[in-house]
Design a protein around this nucleic acid. Structure first.
Lengths: 116, 116
DNA sequence: CCACTGTATTGATGACTGTCAATCTATAGG
DNA sequence: CCTATAGATTGACAGTCATCAATACAGTGG
Protein backbone atom coordinates (compact mmCIF):
# COMPACT_ATOMS: atom_id res chain seq x y z
CA UNK A 1 0.00 0.00 0.00
CA UNK A 2 1.48 3.36 -0.99
CA UNK A 3 2.50 5.69 1.74
CA UNK A 4 -0.02 8.34 0.83
CA UNK A 5 -2.87 5.96 1.47
CA UNK A 6 -1.55 4.99 4.87
CA UNK A 7 -0.96 8.58 5.90
CA UNK A 8 -3.55 10.79 4.17
CA UNK A 9 -2.33 13.98 5.76
CA UNK A 10 -4.59 16.44 4.03
CA UNK A 11 -7.53 14.67 2.46
CA UNK A 12 -8.86 11.51 4.02
CA UNK A 13 -11.71 10.94 1.59
CA UNK A 14 -9.72 10.90 -1.62
CA UNK A 15 -7.02 8.41 -2.43
CA UNK A 16 -4.90 11.00 -4.21
CA UNK A 17 -1.23 11.29 -3.48
CA UNK A 18 0.49 14.11 -1.58
CA UNK A 19 1.39 17.06 -3.75
CA UNK A 20 3.95 19.77 -3.31
CA UNK A 21 1.93 21.80 -5.79
CA UNK A 22 -1.13 21.34 -7.94
CA UNK A 23 -0.62 19.31 -11.07
CA UNK A 24 -1.64 20.67 -14.46
CA UNK A 25 -5.38 20.94 -15.01
CA UNK A 26 -7.16 18.74 -17.53
CA UNK A 27 -7.88 21.78 -19.70
CA UNK A 28 -4.31 23.01 -19.62
CA UNK A 29 -3.10 19.52 -20.51
CA UNK A 30 -5.51 19.39 -23.44
CA UNK A 31 -4.31 22.76 -24.69
CA UNK A 32 -0.62 22.01 -24.33
CA UNK A 33 -1.09 18.61 -25.96
CA UNK A 34 -2.71 20.25 -28.98
CA UNK A 35 0.29 22.51 -29.49
CA UNK A 36 2.76 19.69 -28.91
CA UNK A 37 0.95 17.48 -31.41
CA UNK A 38 1.48 20.18 -34.01
CA UNK A 39 5.22 20.11 -33.34
CA UNK A 40 5.61 16.37 -32.86
CA UNK A 41 6.12 15.46 -36.50
CA UNK A 42 9.43 15.05 -38.33
CA UNK A 43 8.35 17.07 -41.36
CA UNK A 44 6.98 19.91 -39.26
CA UNK A 45 10.07 20.01 -37.04
CA UNK A 46 12.20 20.32 -40.15
CA UNK A 47 9.97 23.07 -41.50
CA UNK A 48 10.26 25.01 -38.25
CA UNK A 49 14.00 24.48 -38.25
CA UNK A 50 14.45 25.56 -41.85
CA UNK A 51 12.45 28.70 -41.27
CA UNK A 52 14.30 29.44 -38.03
CA UNK A 53 17.67 28.87 -39.68
CA UNK A 54 17.06 30.97 -42.78
CA UNK A 55 18.85 34.29 -43.08
CA UNK A 56 15.71 36.09 -44.03
CA UNK A 57 13.04 35.78 -41.39
CA UNK A 58 10.62 34.77 -44.09
CA UNK A 59 10.67 31.60 -46.14
CA UNK A 60 8.67 30.89 -49.24
CA UNK A 61 6.71 27.68 -49.56
CA UNK A 62 8.45 26.82 -52.82
CA UNK A 63 11.80 26.75 -51.00
CA UNK A 64 10.56 24.18 -48.52
CA UNK A 65 9.01 21.52 -50.72
CA UNK A 66 12.08 20.15 -52.41
CA UNK A 67 14.48 19.77 -49.46
CA UNK A 68 11.78 17.95 -47.52
CA UNK A 69 11.14 15.37 -50.22
CA UNK A 70 7.40 15.71 -49.83
CA UNK A 71 4.73 16.72 -52.28
CA UNK A 72 3.54 20.30 -52.49
CA UNK A 73 0.10 19.57 -50.99
CA UNK A 74 1.70 17.76 -48.07
CA UNK A 75 4.03 20.64 -47.27
CA UNK A 76 1.13 23.03 -47.59
CA UNK A 77 -0.80 20.88 -45.14
CA UNK A 78 2.01 20.83 -42.60
CA UNK A 79 2.48 24.57 -42.83
CA UNK A 80 -1.23 25.05 -42.23
CA UNK A 81 -1.03 22.89 -39.10
CA UNK A 82 1.80 25.04 -37.79
CA UNK A 83 -0.03 28.26 -38.59
CA UNK A 84 -3.21 26.99 -36.93
CA UNK A 85 -1.18 26.08 -33.84
CA UNK A 86 0.09 29.65 -33.62
CA UNK A 87 3.69 28.76 -34.34
CA UNK A 88 3.98 30.30 -37.79
CA UNK A 89 2.45 33.24 -39.60
CA UNK A 90 1.67 33.22 -43.28
CA UNK A 91 2.04 36.27 -45.48
CA UNK A 92 0.89 35.81 -49.04
CA UNK A 93 2.32 38.37 -51.47
CA UNK A 94 1.54 37.86 -55.10
CA UNK A 95 1.91 34.25 -56.05
CA UNK A 96 4.19 33.39 -53.16
CA UNK A 97 3.43 32.64 -49.54
CA UNK A 98 6.04 33.61 -46.99
CA UNK A 99 6.20 31.98 -43.60
CA UNK A 100 7.89 33.21 -40.46
CA UNK A 101 8.13 32.07 -36.85
CA UNK A 102 5.82 33.64 -34.31
CA UNK A 103 8.35 35.23 -31.93
CA UNK A 104 8.53 33.43 -28.61
CA UNK A 105 5.99 30.78 -29.52
CA UNK A 106 8.40 27.86 -29.42
CA UNK A 107 10.08 29.21 -26.29
CA UNK A 108 6.72 29.43 -24.63
CA UNK A 109 6.04 25.77 -25.36
CA UNK A 110 9.48 24.85 -24.05
CA UNK A 111 8.84 26.77 -20.83
CA UNK A 112 5.49 25.01 -20.39
CA UNK A 113 7.30 21.72 -20.72
CA UNK A 114 9.89 22.44 -18.05
CA UNK A 115 7.18 23.44 -15.59
CA UNK A 116 4.89 20.53 -16.25
CA UNK B 1 10.40 34.68 -57.17
CA UNK B 2 11.99 34.47 -53.76
CA UNK B 3 15.14 36.41 -53.16
CA UNK B 4 17.25 33.33 -52.60
CA UNK B 5 16.51 32.11 -56.11
CA UNK B 6 17.48 35.42 -57.65
CA UNK B 7 20.68 35.66 -55.64
CA UNK B 8 21.96 32.15 -54.95
CA UNK B 9 25.07 33.26 -53.12
CA UNK B 10 26.49 29.90 -52.15
CA UNK B 11 24.94 27.19 -54.24
CA UNK B 12 23.75 27.90 -57.73
CA UNK B 13 22.57 24.41 -58.56
CA UNK B 14 20.17 23.95 -55.68
CA UNK B 15 17.11 26.09 -55.08
CA UNK B 16 17.51 25.96 -51.31
CA UNK B 17 17.28 29.09 -49.27
CA UNK B 18 20.10 30.92 -47.53
CA UNK B 19 20.81 29.62 -44.05
CA UNK B 20 22.51 31.24 -41.09
CA UNK B 21 23.09 27.74 -39.80
CA UNK B 22 22.24 24.20 -40.79
CA UNK B 23 18.66 23.14 -40.09
CA UNK B 24 17.96 20.01 -38.09
CA UNK B 25 18.80 16.77 -39.89
CA UNK B 26 16.08 14.36 -40.97
CA UNK B 27 17.29 11.82 -38.43
CA UNK B 28 17.35 14.30 -35.57
CA UNK B 29 13.86 15.45 -36.51
CA UNK B 30 12.63 11.88 -36.50
CA UNK B 31 14.15 11.25 -33.08
CA UNK B 32 12.86 14.46 -31.52
CA UNK B 33 9.41 13.86 -33.01
CA UNK B 34 9.29 10.42 -31.41
CA UNK B 35 9.93 11.87 -27.97
CA UNK B 36 7.51 14.74 -28.51
CA UNK B 37 4.79 12.34 -29.64
CA UNK B 38 5.16 10.55 -26.31
CA UNK B 39 4.55 13.82 -24.48
CA UNK B 40 1.89 15.23 -26.78
CA UNK B 41 -1.11 13.63 -25.13
CA UNK B 42 -3.36 15.13 -22.46
CA UNK B 43 -3.36 12.02 -20.29
CA UNK B 44 0.40 11.63 -20.46
CA UNK B 45 1.00 15.30 -19.72
CA UNK B 46 -1.16 14.96 -16.63
CA UNK B 47 0.69 11.82 -15.58
CA UNK B 48 4.03 13.60 -15.91
CA UNK B 49 2.67 16.56 -14.01
CA UNK B 50 1.23 14.48 -11.19
CA UNK B 51 4.48 12.60 -10.78
CA UNK B 52 6.51 15.80 -10.91
CA UNK B 53 4.23 17.50 -8.38
CA UNK B 54 4.14 14.69 -5.85
CA UNK B 55 6.03 15.12 -2.62
CA UNK B 56 7.60 11.74 -2.86
CA UNK B 57 9.59 11.38 -6.01
CA UNK B 58 7.81 8.13 -6.65
CA UNK B 59 4.18 7.63 -7.51
CA UNK B 60 2.27 4.40 -7.52
CA UNK B 61 0.13 3.42 -10.49
CA UNK B 62 -2.92 2.99 -8.26
CA UNK B 63 -2.72 6.67 -7.26
CA UNK B 64 -2.85 7.78 -10.88
CA UNK B 65 -5.79 5.88 -12.28
CA UNK B 66 -8.64 7.49 -10.43
CA UNK B 67 -7.76 11.21 -10.75
CA UNK B 68 -7.28 10.71 -14.49
CA UNK B 69 -10.70 9.19 -15.04
CA UNK B 70 -9.26 6.51 -17.30
CA UNK B 71 -9.29 2.74 -16.99
CA UNK B 72 -6.39 0.92 -15.37
CA UNK B 73 -5.14 -0.65 -18.63
CA UNK B 74 -5.19 2.73 -20.33
CA UNK B 75 -3.13 4.35 -17.59
CA UNK B 76 -0.75 1.43 -17.66
CA UNK B 77 -0.41 1.88 -21.41
CA UNK B 78 0.35 5.60 -21.11
CA UNK B 79 2.94 4.97 -18.40
CA UNK B 80 4.61 2.42 -20.63
CA UNK B 81 4.80 4.92 -23.46
CA UNK B 82 6.50 7.41 -21.15
CA UNK B 83 8.93 4.81 -19.85
CA UNK B 84 9.76 3.67 -23.38
CA UNK B 85 10.41 7.29 -24.34
CA UNK B 86 12.94 7.61 -21.53
CA UNK B 87 10.92 10.13 -19.56
CA UNK B 88 9.93 7.90 -16.64
CA UNK B 89 11.46 4.98 -14.80
CA UNK B 90 9.44 2.16 -13.36
CA UNK B 91 10.33 0.43 -10.11
CA UNK B 92 8.14 -2.51 -9.23
CA UNK B 93 8.25 -3.50 -5.57
CA UNK B 94 5.87 -6.20 -4.48
CA UNK B 95 2.47 -5.67 -6.00
CA UNK B 96 2.97 -1.98 -6.62
CA UNK B 97 4.76 -0.17 -9.42
CA UNK B 98 6.40 3.15 -8.59
CA UNK B 99 7.15 5.69 -11.27
CA UNK B 100 9.53 8.60 -11.14
CA UNK B 101 10.78 11.23 -13.57
CA UNK B 102 14.08 10.67 -15.31
CA UNK B 103 16.08 13.69 -14.09
CA UNK B 104 16.64 16.25 -16.83
CA UNK B 105 14.75 14.35 -19.50
CA UNK B 106 11.97 16.90 -19.90
CA UNK B 107 14.44 19.78 -19.70
CA UNK B 108 16.46 18.17 -22.45
CA UNK B 109 13.41 18.04 -24.69
CA UNK B 110 12.63 21.66 -23.89
CA UNK B 111 16.16 22.69 -24.79
CA UNK B 112 15.95 20.81 -28.09
CA UNK B 113 12.79 22.75 -28.85
CA UNK B 114 14.26 26.18 -28.26
CA UNK B 115 17.17 25.41 -30.55
CA UNK B 116 15.14 23.89 -33.35
C1' DC C 1 -2.07 -24.67 -2.21
C1' DC C 2 -5.61 -21.21 -2.94
C1' DA C 3 -7.99 -16.94 -3.14
C1' DC C 4 -7.05 -12.10 -3.63
C1' DT C 5 -5.04 -7.98 -5.56
C1' DG C 6 -2.16 -4.58 -8.33
C1' DT C 7 -0.29 -4.39 -12.72
C1' DA C 8 0.70 -5.72 -17.51
C1' DT C 9 -0.82 -7.62 -21.89
C1' DT C 10 -3.99 -8.77 -25.65
C1' DG C 11 -7.60 -7.93 -28.94
C1' DA C 12 -11.00 -5.16 -30.83
C1' DT C 13 -12.82 -0.81 -32.27
C1' DG C 14 -13.49 3.86 -33.52
C1' DA C 15 -11.03 8.10 -34.33
C1' DC C 16 -7.36 10.51 -36.09
C1' DT C 17 -3.23 11.46 -39.25
C1' DG C 18 0.27 11.77 -43.02
C1' DT C 19 0.48 11.32 -47.70
C1' DC C 20 -0.46 11.97 -52.60
C1' DA C 21 -3.18 12.72 -57.05
C1' DA C 22 -6.44 15.62 -58.79
C1' DT C 23 -8.57 19.87 -58.67
C1' DC C 24 -9.44 24.62 -57.49
C1' DT C 25 -8.05 29.57 -56.67
C1' DA C 26 -5.68 33.62 -57.38
C1' DT C 27 -2.17 36.27 -59.38
C1' DA C 28 1.32 37.72 -62.98
C1' DG C 29 2.38 38.70 -67.71
C1' DG C 30 1.55 38.92 -72.44
C1' DC D 1 -8.95 37.58 -72.15
C1' DC D 2 -5.71 33.75 -72.05
C1' DT D 3 -2.13 31.09 -70.36
C1' DA D 4 1.08 29.83 -66.93
C1' DT D 5 2.26 29.30 -62.16
C1' DA D 6 2.36 29.14 -56.79
C1' DG D 7 -0.25 27.70 -53.42
C1' DA D 8 -4.56 25.82 -51.09
C1' DT D 9 -8.23 22.47 -50.92
C1' DT D 10 -10.55 18.01 -51.53
C1' DG D 11 -10.97 13.06 -51.48
C1' DA D 12 -9.12 8.72 -50.78
C1' DC D 13 -6.25 5.45 -48.51
C1' DA D 14 -3.12 3.26 -45.43
C1' DG D 15 -1.19 3.48 -41.02
C1' DT D 16 -1.25 4.88 -36.22
C1' DC D 17 -3.42 5.71 -31.73
C1' DA D 18 -6.37 6.08 -27.50
C1' DT D 19 -9.49 3.50 -25.22
C1' DC D 20 -11.72 -0.35 -22.84
C1' DA D 21 -13.16 -5.28 -21.67
C1' DA D 22 -11.20 -9.48 -20.95
C1' DT D 23 -7.42 -12.00 -19.62
C1' DA D 24 -2.84 -13.13 -18.00
C1' DC D 25 0.78 -12.48 -14.65
C1' DA D 26 3.05 -11.92 -10.23
C1' DG D 27 3.22 -11.17 -5.57
C1' DT D 28 0.62 -11.49 -0.67
C1' DG D 29 -1.64 -13.61 2.90
C1' DG D 30 -4.29 -17.01 4.77
Amino acid sequence: MPLAKLLPLTDVSSCSIEMTRDPITADAAEQLARTLKAIADPARLRLLSMIAASTSSEVCNCDLTEPLGLSQPTVSHHLKVLVDAGLLTRDKRGLWAYYSLVPGALDSVARSLTSV
